[in-house]
């Protein structure tokens, strides 16, 4: 298998996961005003017309024997492959392995990004010291790290989790630092007028003020975590959804590749949705704002 082919697949899978994660970011907390309800159902349906139409068309073309569908399997074949993998327990095993890697890397990346971002956001000395280096590291394409991480941490879990953690770290770091630096001076002055201590200022003004931006940073971190797990698994894994992609390529099973991509899309969207649902109560004041505006 050529390296070029691998990279092309990485790109494909990445953009698909990213697209599904970033689209409709507020879907789960959208308002349900009376007039909104219809639009809420009609709009996604319009969006579905093109992909469903193409899928049905391709299915019909293959069924009629106008094309073999060997390299581009029709939807029914993909669905069957998906079912077969699930019935054999294969799909669940690979999904669990991949999700575990993302969870570990995501956890490390979020904690590190939050701490470093908070410190550099508060202290301009630390920011001048660290930020240029971190920005330079951020500019390096993720895949470039893989060979050196494998040399440093071996080909097993450590190098993969490190790669994912590095991917998650940067958006979280940038989001937290930027958010803290851009907290409205006017609100900080309210805290000063009421003579808050440093700790109270952080707890009662700065922390709540950065929360919305922080959650967005965590979500983009999660999106990158899913991208980087694909990169990590494509380059040497015996388990995981990325392995299913490579296995499908090497054994000439395009349906398995597409099934793995679909699985990525589903769990990527699912985990993002979990973050949104879990943090929604913290942002009710923002959500209510949207409701008041549209209702």
């Amino acid at each position: 298998m050529s390296r070029f082919g691998r990279i092309a697949f990485v790109g494909c899978a990445m953009s698909l996961v990213q697209m599904t994660i970033t689209s409709e970011p507020q879907a789960a907390v959208e308002p349900v005003g009376a007039s909104e309800r219809r639009a809420r159902w009609v709009q996604p349906v319009i969006g579905l017309l093109l992909p469903v139409g193409l899928a049905v068309l391709w299915e019909v073309i293959v069924r009629m024997g106008l094309a073999s569908g060997r390299l581009v399997p029709p939807p029914s074949v993909i669905f069957n492959t998906f079912l077969e993998l699930a019935q054999a327990g294969e799909l669940q095993r690979h999904v669990l392995v991949t999700t575990g890697r993302v969870a570990a890397g995501f956890g490390i990346g979020v904690v590190a990004g939050t701490l470093v971002g908070a410190i550099t956001g508060y202290s301009s000395l630390t920011r001048r010291l660290l930020d240029p280096t971190l920005q330079a590291l951020r500019a390096i394409p993720s895949i470039a790290w893989v060979p050196i991480f494998i040399l440093w941490f071996g080909i097993f879990e450590t190098s993969k989790i490190t790669l994912i953690a590095a991917g998650v770290f940067f958006p979280v770091y940038l989001g937290v630092m930027g958010a803290i630096r851009s907290v409205d001076r006017k609100l900080v002055e309210v805290g000063r007028i009421f003579r808050l201590s440093d700790f109270a200022m952080v707890r009662r003004i700065l922390l709540p003020a950065v929360l919305p931006a922080y959650i967005i940073a965590v979500r983009s971190g999660l999106g990158l975590g899913w991208m980087f797990v694909v990169a990590a698994e494509l380059l040497g894994a015996s388990e995981g959804l990325g392995y299913l992609l490579i296995d499908g390529q090497q054994l000439g099973k395009p349906a398995q590749i597409v099934a793995a991509i679909v699985a990525f899309a589903i769990i990527g969207k699912l985990t993002d949705w979990i973050v949104v649902i879990a943090t929604a109560p913290l942002l009710r004041w923002e959500d209510r704002f949207a409701r008041a505006e549209e209702g």
């Binding site: 006017k186 002055e189 000063r192 009421f194 003579r195 003020a209 004041w285 923002e286």
Partner: peptide, 20 residues
């Protein structure tokens, strides 16, 4: 020299904390 507990301020904008 710094904010005093006996001195209150009302600003040009309400400056309410949106999360409260």
């Amino acid at each position: 020299l710094e904010p005093h507990e006996q001195i209150g301020v009302i600003f040009q904008e309400p400056r309410l904390l949106p999360w409260l």
